[in-house]
Design a protein around this nucleic acid. Sequence first.
DNA 1: TAGGCCATCTGGTCCT
DNA 2: AGGACCAGATGGCCTA
Length: 331
Amino acid sequence: MAKTYVKPKEMIELVNTPSWMDKGLGSQNEMKEEERRPAAYGMLGSLAEEHDSIEEEEEEEEDGEKPKRRGPKKKKMTKARLERFKARRVKANARERTRMHGLNDALDNLRRVMPCYSKTQKLSKIETLRLARNYIWALSEVLETGQTPEGKSFVEMLCKGLSQPTSNLVAGCLQLGPQSVLLEKHEEKSPVCDSAISVHNFNYQSPGLPSPPYGHMETHLINLKPPVFKSLGESSFGSHPPDCSTPPYEGPLTPPLSISGNFSLKQDGSPDLDKSYSFMPHYPSANLSSGHVHATPFQAGTLRYDIPIDVSYDSYPHHGIGAQLNTIFTE
DNA sequence: TAGGCCATCTGGTCCT
DNA sequence: AGGACCAGATGGCCTA
């Protein structure tokens, strides 16, 4: 009985129907992403290889002069097998997408509990992981020593191994004291503090929201959570909560992040600076699963930070997240 | 335009 | 057999 082998031409036709164009694949979001993919992306290569192997097999059968391949002989790629293979691949791709989306969601959750969170200027994956490592390390130090770290050293700890831009971002986010003072000089004040910012022991300056185009809501969020370490002393926190009503905080606690930093920062208030960040306190609601309560900026601005801290910027070789994770957590 | 980052596809490996 | 996980490859997007 003659089997129906897939001819090269048929292969190309099959291949030219990209897997993501198959009906019923993926959500709208996925499609958005998938629409970016070039036609016949991916499948072409592998199926072309299969095609090659078919040809080789056919040649082997015909002349038998070539050295025979070791191992189990590959089954003929009949059209039916090809279809099954294709369907399997489509399913596997969908699973892989889902898996990666889950991974990215987890990373997003991690970003949200970092000391500096920005919706618009997201930390890259690797920077998120590095910052997380540093954050854990810094918090461990706090627990161990029982002392709230001095601003500069805390920022140094957080920024260790981070890229310069990320270091600037983190340091900038933690510049609450000096920043607010400076902001009051340059920025138009906007007494917005309507809800959500529960900073039990925080003693920060009056909220200052810059006028557009400097200020962006939901731009940079700082995880400002109630200090856990009441017993560790007031440090830079003072004891006067801001004049705004706040929902009770029930989420995971982190140490005080209101570091009265003593590192220098430049700020000229002009909008055309090469690095400009606007800031906003960020405070998770009790409903952790849904993210955070919307926080109103109490200060924001266009700032330029020249952080004189010794940030060792060793760029890790790009070996994929898995390898990077190993690097990160085995350092 | 180069480089960084990212999403996706893919084949391999391991496990159930 | 099929799913999870992984790493390499690839190409798009963005920014300096």
